[in-house]
Design a protein around this nucleic acid. Structure first.
Lengths: 112, 112
DNA sequence: TTGACCGGTAGGCAATCGCCTACCTATCAT
DNA sequence: ATGATAGGTAGGCGATTGCCTACCGGTCAA
């Protein structure tokens, strides 16, 4: 378990697509996942290992297959990271911020 | 403009910390940002360029300084990507999904 | 038991990353 | 005009990434 950062795990479009497949289709064996990619199976295995190390998927053995399924909990970290940024686009405050910035302000006073 | 993927831009802890600084403190010159990192200034410049290429910061010149400020709009893409996953942890449906998966189902319907 | 199948691991290789030092241009102060 | 300051760019270098082929062990079917 290499304890992979969830942000780093999501940096790859292939890995995001894997999560999307698992979200839409539920647990799936490696072979079936591989059909969706123009890539050899061992490469997919490596992507799946990164996702597993990040806690984003779990593996369950079923005969000679290994079923991977989504484990969305680590995405909570992403959501929480995003929270303080959200109001800036939801409330369209970017322009206000630009104005504030233009005056060379500090924000909540701790000028070093 | 190398048109950088926002997910890739966020993969680096240094770049996330830069965004956090700009969020808390508003526009800042490079030098002041650099004080928060154990890294030479040119490396920071490279990180800032990645953020700029991803549209996450904007640069404004002020004398011989360049003030970088947050541009959170691209984070909306992240938020939208996250949306379909959210209900799985918010409604604690992971266990239900595990049960469904265990039967090797497809999941086209909307199990709610 | 033997062969086919599922999928992980090993190792090679080119490309990219992330840091560095050295250097360059632009601006400001004297 | 000269020197100091802000910060981007060039290029080197080791580490990492992402793909590949080859191989290996475990499971199932005949």
């Amino acid at each position: 378990m290499a304890d992979v950062d969830v942000f780093a795990a999501l940096a790859s479009p292939t890995r995001r697509q894997l999560l999307g497949l698992l979200l839409d289709q539920g647990a799936r064996p490696v072979q079936e996942l591989a059909e969706h990619f123009d890539m050899r199976r061992p490469s997919l295995s490596e992507h799946l290992r990164v996702l597993k190390d990040a806690g984003l998927v779990v593996e369950r053995r079923a005969g000679r297959q290994r079923l991977y399924s989504l484990r969305p909990e680590p995405l909570r970290e992403l959501s929480e990271w995003l929270t303080p940024y959200e109001r800036f686009w939801r409330e369209k405050l970017s322009n206000l911020r630009d104005l504030l910035d233009a005056e060379g302000d500090q924000m909540d006073g701790d000028p070093r």
